[in-house]
């Protein structure tokens, strides 16, 4: 079973227009990828991204709808503002911005999510494990369990 690179996929549940694609994401995602399905990219709090990073994700993909195509009219526009700045901010304190990728999907983008994820995975594999920002790891030595 593949475990690295670990990738967290935050997906807006409306962004994949084709049923086979959504099926693939729901059921056939590689074991190193972790799916978080949300009602809209606007629901993604920067805390979610940070949690994924601190939980040990090597890369993060956020997939959402194009502007003016948001199911909730403006969710993605608000999300873009926040996430864009959040990544600038993480970059400022040393985290590589390239570890997070946005995928904005359109109606005709069938089969694109698979390609994007594969491409992103190979890029993250090149970058290796993130060296900055502490992950939630044991803080005390000793003990055989856990």
């Amino acid at each position: 079973m593949e475990t690295r690179p670990k990738i967290a996929l935050f997906q807006c549940k409306w962004c994949l227009y084709s049923e086979p694609d959504q099926n693939w994401v729901d059921n056939e995602l590689p074991s190193s990828m972790h799916l978080v399905k949300l009602p809209c990219t606007g629901r993604i709090n920067p805390l979610y991204i940070l949690n994924a990073v601190q939980g040990g994700a090597d890369g993060i993909v956020i997939s959402g709808c194009l502007p003016e195509k948001c199911h909730y009219k403006e969710g993605n526009l608000r999300a873009l503002r926040q996430h864009d700045e959040f990544l600038n901010f993480l970059d400022y304190i040393g985290y590589e911005r390239s570890r997070v990728r946005f995928v904005w999907l359109d109606l005709q983008d069938r089969g694109r999510i698979q390609k994007e994820l594969a491409d992103f995975k190979s890029e993250i594999a090149k970058l290796g494990k993130a060296k900055v920002l502490a992950t939630r790891s044991k803080v005390s030595p000793g003990g055989q369990y856990a």
């Binding site: 194009l66 502007p67 003016e68 403006e74 526009l77 608000r78 873009l80 503002r81 864009d84 946005f102 904005w104 359109d106």
Partner: peptide, 11 residues
Amino acid sequence: FNLDDKNRFVI
């Protein structure tokens, strides 16, 4: 939010 932001969506 502002619709002008849409130019910043890298597709």
